[in-house]
Write a protein that binds this DNA or RNA. Structure first.
Length: 305
DNA sequence: TGGGGTCCT
DNA sequence: AGGACCC
């Protein structure tokens, strides 16, 4: 089936997906919870995230906490701590940047990493680079991640999901069809329920069925995003890599006049008010500019001479 | 499960 | 503005 065979690596894209991220962060902070049935979401009474042990007992996301306790007696339910997850996320992305300068932070627990051309630098295969990344994150943060590597973002997404948790999956260009034949069309990134049911009317059940259609069919029935997905499934890069990293730290400094040797002078309201206002406007700006792409918190407000 | 985001038409 | 899809 050489229709889908792409030789060499026009680009090498890794997709990293943390395993049960929220719960992993809690377990990393409280090692006694490792290996246990743990879930997060106590404050809302609904399960937001759960450990693989809890998944094995049949607990699901969105379940009422009361039902989860019935199905899985002894399950530990925690309040969620989004600030903590944000901190783990920041540190995870910082690790990724040590391996490649080109990172797309896709969500709090997911990233694309452009590894194109880095085999020489690391003297190893792309798959082995992924192993190093996985090990580094595990050693430094004590959380587990899965990584997929392939030649497009859509294929890398499929690869990262292929083996979970703690998986590494590489889909080289000459093995694309082997993987796609096992992927249901509705499990492809960007194909939702509507498009899946449309495609099923044409007897397209797997990602491979879709990738083997001719381009005229795709252009006739589907719009731009799906044409991109179609091309990416065939190993043809089409979805832009969005090099996006959120700023990790922003500081604002202000000098006070006249200079003083006495610290108590600095807390006079009329002197600190302009500073307070500038911090306030900076915070407003950040909230508008960043929305919830990152977590905002003050690390320090310091006075220095 | 659902609230909030992006991209496209 | 509305639709489809994502986390």
């Amino acid at each position: 089936m050489q229709v889908l065979s792409v030789h060499s690596w026009p680009q090498a894209i890794a997709h990293l997906d943390a395993d049960a991220f929220f719960v992993s962060c809690e377990q990393a902070s409280m090692p006694a919870l490792k290996g246990k049935c743990v879930a997060v979401g106590k404050e809302r009474g609904i399960i937001i995230a759960l450990s693989y042990e809890a998944k094995a007992k049949g607990v699901k996301r969105g379940m009422f906490v009361s039902d989860a306790k019935r199905i899985c007696p002894g399950i530990i339910i925690l309040d969620s701590n989004h600030e903590t997850y944000g901190l783990f996320s920041v540190r995870m992305f910082e690790i990724l940047k040590r391996f490649s300068p080109k990172i797309e932070e896709y969500s709090v627990d997911e990233a694309f990493i452009d590894l194109t051309g880095l085999r020489r630098l690391y003297s190893c295969s792309y798959e082995e680079i992924a192993v190093k990344i996985q090990n580094t994150i595990e050693q430094e943060l004590s959380i587990s991640v899965s990584i997929g590597i392939s030649i497009t973002k859509v294929l890398a997404k499929i690869a990262s999901k292929y083996k979970k948790p703690h998986g590494i999956t590489a889909i080289p260009g000459n093995k694309i069809h082997l993987y796609l034949s096992n992927i249901l069309i509705e499990d492809v990134w960007g194909i939702g329920p509507n498009t899946a049911s449309l495609l099923k009317k044409f007897d397209i059940k797997t990602a491979l069925d879709f990738a083997l259609k001719n381009e005229n069919f795709v252009k006739k029935y589907l719009s731009k995003p799906y044409i991109q997905i179609y091309k990416e499934l065939k190993g043809e890069p089409s979805i832009e890599f969005i090099e996006k990293i959120s700023p990790k730290s922003i500081s604002k400094a202000k000098s006070f006049y006249p200079p003083s040797q006495k610290p108590e002078d600095l807390i006079l309201p009329h002197q600190t008010m302009p500073f307070a206002l500038s911090i306030y406007s900076l915070t407003l700006f950040l909230i508008m500019a960043l929305k919830d792409r990152c977590f905002l918190f003050f690390k320090a407000i310091s006075l220095a001479s």
